[in-house]
Amino acid sequence: MSPPEFDAEAYARETARLIRLPIDAAHLPGVVQNLRLAARMAAMIEARALPRDVEAAPVFIAGRRA
């Protein structure tokens, strides 16, 4: 059984309500578009298998070279 499809608009509306963040009706389409894009990017990352010997980095600092 596959998971239900992500309803970006419902997610945006409910999350905004829960955190008491007003979203102007004119801005809602852009918010929904960005949530859909983020969901597609997350799905691509989740679909990638990692080797067992790969460990997560403990700290990421932008601009710092390893």
Rank of each mutant, 00 (worst) to 15 (best):
P4I: 05
P51F: 04
G30Y: 03
P29K: 03
A25T: 11
A38Y: 10
T15Y: 14
R20F: 11
E5A: 15
P3G: 11
V31P: 00
Y11R: 05
A43H: 09
F60I: 15
R40P: 02
F60P: 02
E55M: 12
A57R: 15
A8D: 04
G63L: 03
F60V: 15
A56H: 06
E14N: 14
E46D: 15
H27Y: 07
D53V: 11
L35P: 00
P58L: 09
A8C: 09
L35H: 02
A62S: 11
P51S: 06
R20Y: 11
R20M: 12
G30D: 03
A12V: 04
R52L: 13
A16H: 01
P51D: 07
D24M: 08
A12M: 05
A56N: 09
P22K: 03
I45W: 12
F60A: 08
D24A: 15
R40N: 11
P22H: 04
D53Q: 14
R48G: 07
T15H: 13
P58K: 11
A42T: 11
M44Q: 12
R65G: 05
I19M: 13
R36G: 01
A49H: 12
Q33C: 07
A16R: 00
M41F: 10
A26K: 09
G30I: 04
S2D: 07
A8N: 05
E9I: 06
V32G: 01
E55P: 04
A25Y: 09
A16I: 02
R64F: 00
L50H: 10
M1W: 11
A39N: 03
I45N: 11
V59F: 09
H27T: 10
L21S: 05
T15G: 08
G30H: 04
A66D: 06
A25W: 08
I45M: 13
A16F: 01
I61R: 04
D7E: 14
V31Y: 00
A47I: 05
Q33P: 04
I61L: 07
L35E: 02
R36W: 01
D24C: 08
M44S: 12
A10R: 10
V59N: 06
A49Y: 07
L21H: 06
V31F: 01
F6P: 00
L37A: 15
A42L: 14
M44Y: 08
V54M: 09
V59E: 08
I61D: 03
Y11C: 05
A16C: 06
L35T: 03
L37K: 13
P22Y: 03
A12K: 01
R65C: 07
M41H: 10
R20D: 15
A47V: 05
L28A: 03
E14A: 15
R20Q: 15
L18K: 14
V59K: 06
R64I: 00
M1L: 13
A38T: 10
A57C: 09
G63N: 01
E9M: 06
Y11V: 09
P58G: 06
F6Y: 12
A49Q: 14
V59D: 08
E9K: 05
I61P: 02
P3M: 14
P4D: 06
M1P: 09
E46C: 13
L28Q: 02
L21C: 06
R20S: 13
V54Y: 05
A16K: 00
A66N: 06
A39K: 01
V54L: 13
